[in-house]
């Protein structure tokens, strides 16, 4: 996993609430055995007509909006436990998703795949949407170290919560297994001592 420390980027606005995992990646695209390539079908039925042509009014098809930050309405990622939802967003090129509320399983899945879910207040979320509306190339800075999200144009900043363990993992680019392996020496000492007793 790619380590995450600080990111400065423009953002893509998706002011829709309750975006569910079937919108993020429909089930008919789940038949793959690796984690790559799901970005092609991210938001498939919002992005493309059934004949495969682009839907021009969908934000990902609007070249004005670019960036590695996705900003979405509350209760983002509700529905399935399919990790493909997080993979698709990361594979498309997003590194941060901002919302005022995330579904539990999605949030965990995102953290396990180097995709940082940032929870902000409903008011601050509204300010982010306004900042993008005023200036589509407005940049935002996400500092994981300081747990701070900043609207660069206005210098408005807010702090966000993250589990300290997950923070360590993201900064080091570890998933849970990488973290365990990094603790291998300590685990072996523990096992040895337990066996002796």
């Amino acid at each position: 996993m790619k380590p995450f420390t600080t990111l400065q980027s423009t953002a893509v606005p998706l002011p829709i609430e309750d975006v569910d995992t079937d919108q993020i990646i429909p089930a008919r695209f789940l038949k793959a055995t690796t984690r790559e390539g799901f970005g092609d079908n991210l938001f498939r039925d919002w992005r493309f007509h059934q004949d495969g042509t682009s839907k021009d009014d969908f934000v990902l098809n609007n070249p004005v909006y670019q960036g590695e930050i996705l900003v979405a309405g509350k209760n983002f990622g509700c529905g399935s436990s399919r990790e493909h939802a997080a993979w698709a967003i990361a594979d498309y090129g997003f590194r941060v998703v901002v919302s005022s509320f995330f579904a539990d399983i999605f949030r965990g899945n995102a953290l396990n795949n180097g995709l940082l879910p940032v929870v902000v207040s409903p008011d601050f979320l509204h300010q982010i949407f306004e900042a993008i509306e005023a200036n589509p190339v407005a940049t935002f800075t996400v500092s994981l170290e300081n747990q701070a999200f900043t609207i660069d144009d206005t210098a408005q900043t807010t702090s966000f919560e993250i589990d300290p363990y997950k923070k360590t993992c993201l900064i080091n680019g570890y998933d849970d297994i990488d973290f365990l392996i990094s603790q291998r020496a300590a685990i072996e000492v523990f096992e040895l001592n337990s066996l002796v007793k």
């Binding site: 529905g79 399935s80 436990s81 990790e83 399983i105 965990g108 899945n109 396990n112 795949n113 849970d176």
Partner: peptide, 26 residues
């Protein structure tokens, strides 16, 4: 289990819940 409807087993008084693929690996 890697399915959010694993919670069905809660009917038997189990703690049962869905997890993602990385957690299945774990």
């Amino acid at each position: 289990c890697g399915d959010s409807h694993t919670s069905t087993h809660g009917a038997f008084g189990c703690i049962a819940f869905g997890i993602g693929t990385s957690q299945v690996e774990q």
